[in-house]
């Protein structure tokens, strides 16, 4: 049984971004993001480069074993790696997650929203998921705002799998039907907008 990576390898394109599988050259910027106290406050906390490397390898590893994982997000205009966004479901995880983590240089531009929309579309369309969740630190208001903007609602909270069982996260999410209804509404309003005088 060979690698579970789909063939051809998925590449998603949005107006300003490319989402593709992680590559070795992404690590320098990934390590920058993981050594940034502000960028990691609500997730892993600051990691050393060796720790960041081990965590970075989990994404390509998950692609090979599960056939899906978070995508590397690249800004089209600069070619820079700006973050990691997409489907994620490690062993024992609390559901079918679409998560996001952006390098701080890419904050405040709507990139996370743009990439997460594409990743959620892909997860429902290609993986056939029935719902998406986002596990968010209760103090992380920026990610909560993004989840809301994506149409997800807070459903409750739960603790992470051991050994991080003392960490509680809020679970945000929505069903496939809710996402598809939202997409249909958007397409209809886009259509009306283009016909507006």
């Amino acid at each position: 049984m060979p690698s579970a990576v789909p063939s051809p390898e998925p590449v998603l394109e949005t107006e300003r971004l490319i989402l593709r599988l992680p590559q070795r050259g992404d690590f320098e910027r990934y390590a920058e993001a993981k050594t940034d106290p502000d960028g990691t406050r609500y997730t892993s906390g600051v990691l050393s480069r060796p720790e960041a490397w081990r965590k970075f390898l989990e994404y390509p590893g998950a692609w090979m074993l599960q056939g899906f994982a978070m995508f590397s997000v690249v800004e089209k205009s600069s070619g820079l790696w700006i973050g990691i966004i997409g489907p994620w479901q490690p062993e024992g995880w609390q559901g079918t997650e679409v998560g996001w983590s952006l390098h701080r240089s890419a904050w405040g531009k709507g990139y996370a929203y743009e990439a997460a929309e594409a990743a959620i579309d892909w997860s429902f369309d290609v993986l056939g998921w029935q719902e998406v969740i986002h596990s968010i630190n209760p103090d992380n208001v920026r990610s909560q705002a993004l989840a809301q903007r994506l149409g997800s609602r807070k459903r409750g909270s739960c603790s992470l799998p051991p050994p991080r069982e003392n960490v509680t996260v809020d679970i945000w999410g929505q069903t496939r039907e809710e996402w598809l209804a939202r997409r249909a509404r958007q397409q209809s309003s886009d259509h009306q907008a283009t016909r507006a005088p």
Binding site: L57, E58, Y59, P60, G61, A62, P163
Partner: peptide, 15 residues
């Protein structure tokens, strides 16, 4: 833990 083992497994495959 199972979760730690899984992440370690992923990192080895990712290599």
């Amino acid at each position: 833990s199972a979760f730690e083992a899984w992440r370690h497994f992923l990192a080895n495959v990712g290599s």
